[in-house]
Amino acid sequence: MEEFFQQLTNGLAVGGIYALIALGYTMVYGVLKLINFAHGDLFTYGAYLGLTLLTSLALTDRLGFALGVLVLVLMVMGLVAVLGAILERAAYRPLRESPRLSAVVSALGASIFLQNTLMLIYGARFQVYPDNILPATTLHLFGLYLPLMRVLIVLASVAMMAALYLFIQKTRIGTAIRAAAIDQGAARLMGIDVNRVILLVFLMGPALGGAAGLMVGLYYGQINFTMGWVYGMKAFTAAILGGIGNIPGAMVGGLLLGVIEALGAAYLSIAWKDAIAFLVLILILIVRPTGLLGERVADKI
């Protein structure tokens, strides 16, 4: 039983990261019906930018651990958000009136470009975060080993997701985003500046993805230029699992996928882990064709 709970916490920690990245996919999809395949690479940029800022500015030395990391998170989120906006401008906006899949191919091209840019700037070798920044405390509770950082990561992801949810549900801008997601034309008629909504979505999604990248860098220590591909794919799966376009869905999907992976590895087979996760996804989609929380959309006739 102890092992089960240990695996559960393992899964939740991984799932929290998936969920944060999945939010970026789902927000963009909600408004633009576009699968932003370059989103995983923005996550990688978060990890690399975080490393550069951390080592060049020595934030944690100057400001202390807590404040230093906080400033770092904000800086990375800001920079990656700007990158996301540039991406939207250059690779997606020209294709907004085109068939949906054209933008997907553009996204794939952008992904290749972003990934290889990183490789040329930083080199192909793994980059490593300095390992003395974070407290390496491990909590030992109820027979479970919980490294403090893992707990913090889960808490931070949940906090960011909650903040986003409240923002979308309670503020005027959030309402505008939801309106644009339902019907862009009608939203425009209601006086909503859809272009600004899209820009906003492309600032927020990448910011969260960048934060996730930074957290992965800080906690796991090792980053490389292809990591966004793996995480991006998992997060996209999570977004679909929860029902793409649906913000709570991305959170649920992310956490659930992490748990499925951990338990699948623990009780079925490690080598088949990813296959098990995809199989569960397919079974869920057969039963619920629009994901767990996705709304059924009536076909327009």
Binding site: A90, A91, V105, S106, L108, G109, A110, S111, I112, F113, L114, Q115, N116, T117, M119, L120
Partner: peptide, 8 residues
């Protein structure tokens, strides 16, 4: 890198 750019 060039290839990705050309695709976009």
């Amino acid at each position: 890198l060039v290839f990705g750019l050309v695709m976009v």
